[in-house]
């Protein structure tokens, strides 16, 4: 029942997004332009600064994530549909889970574009250890989106939501970004530092458990007026 509702919410978001591809295309374009800006900043005499690729990848994910979160809930606010969603006779954590899955899938879709682009532009051997990279990206994205979904949902009612989302989200999720960046740059060394990457993956898993638990636990009282 719980997961069926979460999947229904996901399906709803999916159906709306498939009609226009608005959020996916804008987010992906934004992420790509982010990488382009960084490439101007970190390339000297045709060579990328060492170790820049991991940082650029994760900063682009974080910035694009903020944009996607803002847009997703702006859509709900515009149609006043979040209120309707919350009125539904369904457990609130299930609604949260559905929204979270939607954001995570959106970010995964962006990363499918972003990772090859960073690997290509910065000559970074990102695909040498595909399983470890996949684990880093998946766990990092989930951790970031878990907190982001909670705060973006709360901010729907706030007047200053555009500025407040990054202000609240970044300090809390910086540990996730640090783990992602350090894990990825361990993979980019030659030879790849697998034990180090595994350690950061474990830490990311730990953050995810803490963040998802806290979010599921606080979503219900936070969304009650």
């Amino acid at each position: 029942m719980f997961f069926r509702i979460a999947l229904l919410v996901l399906k709803k978001d999916f159906a709306i997004e498939l009609k226009s591809y608005e959020i996916l295309s804008t987010t992906a374009f934004f992420a790509v332009s982010c990488v382009a800006i960084f490439s101007f900043a970190f390339v000297k005499e045709g060579q990328a600064v060492e170790d820049a690729a991991a940082g650029i990848l994760w900063i682009a994910i974080a910035f694009a994530g903020t944009l996607a979160l803002g847009r997703t809930f702006e859509r709900e606010r515009y149609g006043e549909t979040l209120k309707a969603l919350l009125l539904a006779p369904a457990p609130r954590p299930a609604i949260y889970l559905g929204k979270l899955l939607g954001i995570v899938m959106l970010l995964f879709a962006t990363e499918v574009l972003l990772v090859p682009m960073v690997a290509f532009l910065f000559n970074a051997p990102l695909f040498d250890r595909p399983v470890l990279l996949l684990a880093l990206l998946a766990l990092g994205t989930i951790g970031y989106a878990a907190v982001g979904t909670l705060f973006a949902a709360m901010l729907v009612r706030a007047r200053t939501r555009d500025v407040m989302l990054p202000i609240l989200l970044y300090p809390i999720t910086i540990p996730v970004i640090i783990a992602g960046v350090r894990g990825t740059s361990a993979l980019l060394q030659s030879p790849p530092d697998e034990p180090m990457a595994t350690l950061w993956i474990a830490l990311l898993g730990f953050f995810d458990v803490v963040f998802v638990t806290l979010s599921l636990w606080t979503f219900e009282p936070l969304m009650t007026e």
Binding site: L150, M154, T160, M164, L168, I172, L222
Partner: peptide, 14 residues
């Protein structure tokens, strides 16, 4: 300070 009405809950989450 700047969250406007309803910011108490946001702050509590922080």
């Amino acid at each position: 300070k700047y969250g406007g009405p309803g910011s108490e809950k946001l702050a509590a989450a922080m």
